[in-house]
Amino acid sequence: MNRRTLIASAVALLLAGGLSLNLASTPALALDELRIIAPAAPGGGWDQTARAMQEAVQSGGAVKAVTVENVPGAGGTVGLAQLAGQEQGKDNVLMVNGLVMVGAILTNKSAVTLENTTPIARLTGEYEVIVVPGSSELKTLADLVAKLKADPGAVAWGGGSAGGTDHILAGLVAKASGADVSKLNYVPFSGGGEALAAVMGGHVVAGISGYSEWEGQIKSGELRALGISAPERVAGIDIPTLKEQGVDVELANWRAIVAPPGLTDEQKQALLATVDAAVKSDSWKKVLAAKNWTDLYLPGDDFTKLVAAENVRVTEILKGIGLVQ
């Protein structure tokens, strides 16, 4: 691992040396160092996003030293509190966040919200699948919806943590089907395959997860995918969308990058330019391909609007479920 880091930094150095001539003509970014906060423990999605961003920024050579700092805890709200608190007004700090944080802020009753940040851009995302065990009598999404309408409590959903993306999708699907959301029977499991075992063992009726996590079991037929939460069919994934089956829900488990509050417009534009360059680098494209992440790059004001819209939608559904008062 050490050797790999060494090679990576050597490559980065060479690139930096090679590119310095070109950079002289572009407006210089006054950044000696950049710190990217991953508000989660090493290894998870946010950490991987932060590290991919670190390499991408470094490969551009615009910033001399890019570091990643892990601040785990409470769905990222511990990191968020740090960003809005001690990092306030600093123009060399970024933090990764995502849809999960929108829910966590609500369920944890966090004093700091995403409004206390400077939104930079949405980066990537993943769509969710709804599955049943391969042996289930439910063959299509329509079967599941019918069961859900008849008795929402009879459909035990297995998925990730309470108030997380999986839970939100279950709520959105129940609502769109016209079922009573307050009777949603969602069973949260902690990560690492526990939910998968419960679905495969037939202990719950249906399961929800990011597609890539259960891809193997879906392909082998142990799980039957009833629908994917994408706006339209995803290339390479043979699963109908929820929308085309009459359930008007789309949801991406997006990951984004934000800056501390209290920045001037200039500072914000400089950070945006850094991220923009990183997202267009080969390094970033390679990571997207290698990790099978969907590119959902959405910079600037459009992202700010998205966050506001998601906040409304998530708040409404979590209130409906009863997780938030």
């Binding site: 785990p72 805890g73 409470a74 769905g75 709200t77 511990v78 509190a81 829910g103 966590a104 369920t107 944890n108 009753k109 943590s161 309470a162 108030g163 069973v187 949260p188 902690s190 997780l323």
Partner: peptide, 20 residues
């Protein structure tokens, strides 16, 4: 910490670091 099933904080005494 945070209750697994409902996502509500328990015995955390409003200390952020205890949420996890």
């Amino acid at each position: 910490g945070t209750d697994v099933l409902t996502g509500q904080p328990r015995l955390t005494f409003d200390i952020l670091s205890l949420l996890r």
